[in-house]
Amino acid sequence: MAEEKNGKNGGKVGLLDRVKEKITGDVQALKTDIPTKAKEQIEGLKDPTKTQVYTSIFRHKHDETPRNRALGVLSNVFLHLHPAKINRDAVRYSYTWGMGGITFYLFIVLTFTGVLLMFYYHPTKVQAFRDVLYLEHDVPFGKLLRNMHRWAAHLMVIAVWLHMFRVFLTGSYKKPREFNWNIGVLLLVFTLLLSFTGYLLPDDQLGFWAVTVGTNMARATPLLGHEGPFGPLLGMTPYNDVRFGLLGGSIVDANALLRSYIWHCIGIPIVASVLMIVHFWRVRKDGGISGPAQVMLESEADKPRRGPTAAGA
């Protein structure tokens, strides 16, 4: 076959010609291929939502069809905390006050600012206070960071209280949401404990005496405190009672600082996060947010109800 193709001019010259011919062909094609591809590329970029990268991230169109509005929520791991649709009146601010969501948002803000603060802080008696001074005077935006962490913490306490207040006033703890109310009470306690453990960390007079006052109460724990009822009878002393366990010593000192640091930055946030997951999950599983529901008349109060009533149903 090769001989036939090479023809009478012999093998070697023919080879050179053929290479030349093919390369010219390539060059010719290059002149038309690349501009075509470039044109296609530019055309494609005019609608980035059609690129493979985009469609791999967002798996549906982003338009105003009911299907895609629902998918926008359902196909997003962060948004799918929500149902696709809710009671038309549940979006009214006057019903929920938005306090649960604001509490969660503040928790995120606190985690973010808290992690940044941890870069500048050593939980030791020698360095803790100096670190705060350094943070306030030398670290760029350090003062803002610390202020934000503190005020967000105070705001979170207030938001949690108002959230509980709203949930109570709307009777949202009633069947079938009893258990989630309990998770909420625990989250309230952990919010206060988070704030309280953070109070000691600047290692200043304010935190020191606040925590001293707070933990002195633990001395008086019945049975488990050395000044509490029946405590001494059970062999409680300042060196083995529940206060000793909290402080890691008989006074508020280096161990107390380390313990409150670890509770504040690791222990309680983990527990609170787990409880939050359960809390949000149960909001959905118990039929979404409680209302605004239809008002119930006196005559209907003792009629058996069929299953959990979803909001607005």
Binding site: R69, A70, G72, V73, H82, A84, K85, R88
Partner: peptide, 11 residues
């Protein structure tokens, strides 16, 4: 409608 879409009305 008795219900509204979370996207965008709640978000």
């Amino acid at each position: 409608q008795k219900e509204v879409h979370v996207w965008p009305f709640l978000l």
